[in-house]
Amino acid sequence: MTARIVTANGLRDGEVLYLARGGRWTRDLAEAEPAESPEAEAALMAIAEGAMRCRAVVEAYAMAVAVEEGTPHPLSQRERIRAAGPTVGTDIAIERGR
């Protein structure tokens, strides 16, 4: 099913972070807490706004995910790359293998 999770970048390092249960920020997408209703999303965003005020993170926003067996998977290419890192080292192997 589709749901939304909240992501941001750390203020100090700029690293990609996801909002997990209990208002904790994690680098691990699998730990992100999915919101399955607009109310739940608003509640997560409220936590994120607080974290921005406290200077833990910047540029927080909600993004769409597909939840499969309890684990969120990003739907957009942008968010897949944000989660997994640049693909610039991997595609070469694909081309060479053709």
Binding site: N9, D13, G14, E15, V16, V58, E59, R78, I81, R82, G85, P86
Partner: peptide, 12 residues
């Protein structure tokens, strides 16, 4: 930004 620092996908 005036000092050339951007926030990108994975990092500054």
């Amino acid at each position: 930004l005036m000092n050339g620092v951007y926030l990108q996908l994975h990092a500054y």
